[in-house]
Design a protein around this nucleic acid. Sequence first.
RNA 1: UCCACUGUGCUU
Length: 239
Amino acid sequence: PGMWNSKIREAVNQGHSEKALVLFRQMKRSGVAPNNSTFPFVAKACARLCDLRNSQIIHTHVAKSWFQSNIFVQTAVVDMYSKCGQLEDAYNLFVGMPDRDIASWNAMLLGFAQWGLLDRVLCLLRQMRLTGIHPDSVTVVLLTHAILHMKNPTFVSAIHSFGVRLGVHIDVSVANTLIAAYAKSSDLCSAEVVFDEIDSGLRSVVTWNSMIAAYADFEKHVNAVNCYKGMLDGGFSPD
RNA sequence: UCCACUGUGCUU
């Protein structure tokens, strides 16, 4: 199945999810069995398309496959169902997983976070820590999203402190998320503090974009323009 | 041993 896998992977990586599913159908029709490096990609394609019908078809194939207990495959299926809105299917699969690593927990946390189920996010986080799995930078980003809709800077600050305790606040994606979250919670000052505290060598285009967007939200157009200039000075080109 | 490879996360 190697050549099918690389075609499917290429399609997914280029954002052509429908094409990936077409290739998957062709693969099956030609009698080639999908394997552990087929399923995660087609699952991702379904997740992106929020395509429940194909998700169920893929899950059926997974269930009949030798690779049904592969942790990568299972995590991808959990994520696929979550993104299609089938949270209880996702959760049931998650609970039945023989092994779960941080990515598995994060995928399930994201599922609850995406649908605004903060209580379930917190409950799952507690369970995760009880099993000895430590939250990572991805977890912190997800938690930030879970509390974002409340637009409460106190909550953002709590997650921020949590990230500092874990030592993941230096992760650029975490910082970028916090900048946006503080700004959306009307705490521009804290957004600026986070921005200033990132090593200038670690700032990415997303970091700059986040800060510019923050200033724009507050209608601080002069700051936004200065920030934009800073981005250009930093050697970044706008995207 | 290290690295890279298939699953979860950044702004608009």
